[in-house]
Design a protein around this nucleic acid. Sequence first.
DNA 1: CTTGTGACATACAGGAATGAATGTAAATCT
DNA 2: AGATTTACATTCATTCCTGTATGTCACAAG
Lengths: 204, 204
Amino acid sequence: MARRTKAEAAATREALLDAAEEVFLEKGVARTSLEQIARHAGMTRGAVYWHFKNKADLFQAMLCRVRMPFQELIAEIAEPSLMERPLEAIRLAIQNGFERLEQPRHRRVHAILVHHCEVFGDIDPLAMQNEMANEACGALTDHFTCAARLGQLREDLSPENAAELMQALLGGLFHDWLRNHERFSIATKGSELVALQLELMRRP
Amino acid sequence: MARRTKAEAAATREALLDAAEEVFLEKGVARTSLEQIARHAGMTRGAVYWHFKNKADLFQAMLCRVRMPFQELIAEIAEPSLMERPLEAIRLAIQNGFERLEQPRHRRVHAILVHHCEVFGDIDPLAMQNEMANEACGALTDHFTCAARLGQLREDLSPENAAELMQALLGGLFHDWLRNHERFSIATKGSELVALQLELMRRP
DNA sequence: CTTGTGACATACAGGAATGAATGTAAATCT
DNA sequence: AGATTTACATTCATTCCTGTATGTCACAAG
């Protein structure tokens, strides 16, 4: 067609990213062509190559819309009363993250990252997942250490082991839920299981 | 070259599958061509198309070499003394599975399935993972129910919740370890954490 | 010994995807 | 209003991979 206004151009850019999410999730990243993405957004490949350098660039732009640093989750629930109840702080932070995960955009992009893309140009999904896991495990260790100092952790459970158990549990729930999110809600069922696990870890 | 004896032909078939494992793991399934696999095995594409119908067929043959039904793991440790200690049976079965996972072939194929392939022809890795997860969860539920009947489970922990917690833990450990198996041994560290979790679940 | 077939290698045709080049009409600038 | 740039659409050349067809040579049967 013809030139659009700046706002319209930004809209088509978003539309292309939306289309990429949907097609990537349906057919996998490697097996979708830029043509398919463009058609699904009602555009042609020209639009894609205008807004993005190539497929990897588009992919990265898609990821940028859902960045969710784990520390931020804990920082968001900065109620002073929780300083003395670190286990409760952990629970709330995780529930916070789970609820954010259930937003369709976050769910789709994470499902793509975890299940529908392989190694990809200079983007290595495994490295990204490792980063996230390490960050989460570090934050968990901090708070479990705090809990141990306050005597709220079982004596036979070291803070490091507690953090590793919880991180593995989170990862498992995350993967299970991403595989088919229709089976259960991670915000309710997942939070429930996390709370239960925290009860198992709490000093009686 | 020329015709080999039957044993040599079977050997080249295995060599092709080995090569497929290595290249798939390194570059991802979608981004490796049959040419690359053949060259990596010191053959040409002709050999591949002789032994396998196409890429999907080769992929499936690769999977067939590592089938590991979860029930089999529990059946293998069929010591009668364990009938009365279901938690110990679970622990041993999981340790058994973890040790088998550390065989290079099993580790590579599972890493490929989980992290390096997308949807693929008539093979859906997610469906396979779902099957495995359901099977594992079912077996776990059975044994945790048995443990509950014997009064070996904490009263505030239902067998279903116990099974789901354990399955999520297993999945998380599995994924974490597959991402980089050099960081820790799942047979030792993983089994340790599983044993610890079972302690948390045991009635005091 | 020769003959057939098994186990590959090589050659060829076709499609599909990429990236660049070019076209174009409207929006914005001056 | 004219010039320029923006935001795309269209076309084209190139590469890559697949699948098939054909060639080839060694082993085993007769």
